[in-house]
Design a protein around this nucleic acid. Structure first.
Lengths: 200, 200
DNA sequence: CTAGTTTGCCTAGGAACCCTAGGCAAATGA
DNA sequence: TCATTTGCCTAGGGTTCCTAGGCAAACTAG
């Protein structure tokens, strides 16, 4: 019988494409096997389990996203860098909803260690923020805020959370602008307040 | 045979509790039936399908969350209101991870219309922001930014996205503070820029 | 070229899950 | 009290995940 010539990478690619077309939750071993023209049991030579398959998609997407963002930010700084970062991030999420959804799953740290690229997205964020003159721990706080906002925005947008008539693209640009302003006027280390006292 | 006395509400409650304990993806008809001490087929008298069950959890969680947030914000304004909103939101998500995860699923608009309470969370956000003197369309932009940041933050936190040594609670408080500052210095309607020109 | 090894894909089959159909008995109301 | 409704049941079909074991294509060594 003719062989399909599958590899783990090829299977992951097919699964990622399926995720983008049909939704990440539609990625099943059977469905991917169908796409590959193969019986479901045959995929288990290349992939350990459904979870393994999903982790591979997540790592693939993480690397792709990190590459796009890094390329967009390269050679820019300040507002330019922030805008490029934000747009590259959102564009990827919109173009690859299934892959982006995959990046949200909790992945086994051991598997993550095998993919240093996916981790380096965070480094890109840190590098970009150095232009704003922030020092630790404000740097980490700002990185978390940016990641949260970007992730939250594309996540809500993908989930149809913005049904108001206001144009989403315009709204996004204002949000990025607002974040830029925020980074330039990052509140100085807070004077002790009730909130800080509660902070252990 | 003795009856278990189930109702749609009771089933939803059990399913929501299971979601919080085991994870939203572990909510299956069979598992909920086991918890209720009943055969899986029996649940279909109360619930149309697995999707229906999940939608019910999402609506329940949406209402609970809206209630908590509304109660927290009541009688406050400005920074107080923002902090109360943010903390109530995050506290709920941390206390009820499964319920919170449920709120992220895409729900049939028809089903959503039956639950006006869940929708009113947005209204609470708008009401809170009026204290900052924003007018449309900035108001909507700000609401989207806040929702995104809060959702993104608790979402990343729940997914274990913050492994840096920096204390998450302290980071969160700085983020909320930063958002407060941002709202007070919300950038004026942008002067026409290249970005705006692209905006249709 | 040939013989042994590896490997890619197969069939078979068990377990869990979703859901429908149809039955019986408990609860309800005339 | 008796008919109706309703809550839960068993039976069973379809899908999916995954394991075990087999066969033949592709590679490797003599």
């Amino acid at each position: 019988m003719a062989r399909a010539g599958l590899t783990a990478a090829r299977v992951t690619q097919a699964a990622a494409d399926l995720a983008d077309e049909a939704g990440f939750d539609k990625v099943t071993v059977s469905a991917v096997a169908r796409v590959c023209g193969v019986r479901d049991a045959s995929l288990y030579s290349h992939v350990k389990s459904l979870q393994d398959l999903r982790t591979r998609i997540a790592l693939l997407a993480g690397e792709e996203l990190a590459d796009r963002v890094a390329a967009a930010v390269a050679g820019r700084s300040g507002r330019d860098a922030l805008t490029a970062f934000a747009d590259a991030y959102r564009d990827y999420a919109r173009a690859h909803p299934g892959r982006y959804a995959a990046t949200q799953i909790r992945i086994d740290p051991a598997a993550l260690a095998d993919s240093p690229k996916a981790l380096r997205k965070i480094d890109t964020t840190y590098a970009m923020l150095r232009g704003y003159g922030l020092e630790e721990p404000d740097l980490t706080d700002a990185v978390r805020l940016l990641r949260s906002t970007f992730h939250g925005y594309v996540s809500l947008e993908a989930g149809g959370g913005f049904n108001h008539s206001r144009d989403v693209q315009a709204s996004w640009e204002r949000a990025v602008e607002a974040l830029h302003v925020l980074l330039e006027h990052w509140p100085a280390a807070a004077a002790p307040t009730a909130a800080d006292a509660r902070d252990r």
